[in-house]
């Protein structure tokens, strides 16, 4: 670990003001950042501890949205009655992640920005374009069982590891941020970036911008939603494939649908293609399978991860069946 300074501002403006300089990072729960610092992957010269900021609340807004403060702990969010009732997909996604101890520390803001679990990214002895731009990608021709099949580039094939983000992608969340130049709202699908030629850039957040909240817009049928995560062991592991779905089914017809996939994409993977395939179709296995084919259309396998394509399809079909039933 590189030596660093740590400051504890207790108001938002001070925090933002102190984060403008290069090589300064916010620290929230620290469950990802500290690990990365110990392994010399992140080397901030200064950490800005944001835990004293007033970003810990979950509020139902008059327009029907729910606004979640950036410092809300993953466990508090997962067990919040409004989330449990109206957004089970989000609650389930959060509870499928990490362990209770980690969820008690991890925050919404930190979860949005958690970095990939590609093993090569974690070992500074290996070339990795995400860690050292231009050094090469060790995973493409290396061990890549856990890597992505959707959204990959010639420079990087790492998955985005978050479960929470997959649910938020499906729900079309909005990320609220504030920087020295003011406040912005970023739609979820514009928040994370594809690796393309610059895998070191993972989001559209600008340096020094603070995530203040995530807003869940109202969706009439979001109570009919589900998150299914498939992995090698039954707990405490990142997804090999996961699916976040919400369905509005009426008289055996799908009227509206939200679909996102995890574990297979280089970013939390909202599948508009799958949603299109579902809307207007009968709520039956064939429609679910069609949606799954649409979602994985264009998926590109690598040496060890070809199975993820079929696994993701089956995961999505199972999740859709669970919510939409079989008519």
């Amino acid at each position: 670990m590189e030596p660093f300074k740590l400051i504890h501002p207790n108001d938002q403006h001070a925090a933002i003001a102190s984060s403008g300089a290069a090589n300064v990072k916010f620290i929230a729960g620290g469950t990802n950042l500290i690990d990365l610092m110990k392994l010399d992957i992140e080397k901030p010269a200064q950490l800005v501890d944001i835990n004293s900021l007033k970003l810990q609340t979950i509020e139902a807004l008059p327009n029907g949205s729910v606004r979640i403060g950036a410092l809300v702990k993953n466990s508090d969010l997962a067990y919040h009655p409004v989330i449990v009732k109206n957004y089970p997909v989000l609650s389930e996604a959060l509870l499928s992640g990490a362990s209770p101890q980690l969820r008690n520390m991890a925050t919404v803001g930190g979860n949005l920005l958690q970095r990939t679990r590609c093993p090569y990214f974690y070992d500074t002895s290996f070339p990795c374009n995400k860690r050292v731009p231009g050094s090469g990608c060790s995973a493409i021709n290396g061990y890549n069982r856990n890597n992505a099949v959707l959204g990959t580039s010639t420079q990087c094939i790492a998955t985005h590891p978050s479960d929470m983000c997959v649910a938020m992608a499906a729900l079309g969340a909005i990320v609220h941020v504030e920087g020295l130049t003011g406040k912005r709202q970023i739609p979820f699908h514009e928040f994370h970036l594809l690796p393309e030629q610059t895998p070191q850039y993972e989001t559209t957040l600008k340096h020094g911008e603070l995530i203040t909240a995530v807003e869940l817009p109202p969706i009439r049928y979001s109570a009919k939603s589900h998150y299914l995560k498939v992995r090698d062991r039954h707990s405490y592991e990142f997804a090999l494939a996961s699916a976040a779905v919400a369905l509005n089914v009426s008289n055996g017809r799908i009227e509206a649908a939200r679909v996102a996939l995890g574990g297979v994409g280089t970013k939390p993977w909202r599948s508009v293609e799958a949603e299109k395939a579902l809307v207007g179709a009968a709520a039956d296995e064939q429609s679910y399978r069609n949606a799954a084919e649409a979602a994985l259309n264009g998926a590109k396998p690598f040496k060890d991860n070809a199975f993820k394509i079929e696994l993701a399809k089956r995961t999505l079909v199972r999740a859709l069946k669970t919510v939409g039933g079989m008519s």
Binding site: P119, S138, N141
Partner: peptide
């Protein structure tokens, strides 16, 4: 798992 190109352990934690 070992890296097939340089024999370094990949799954190290």
């Amino acid at each position: 798992a070992y890296d097939p190109n340089n024999g370094r352990v990949v799954t190290r934690d």
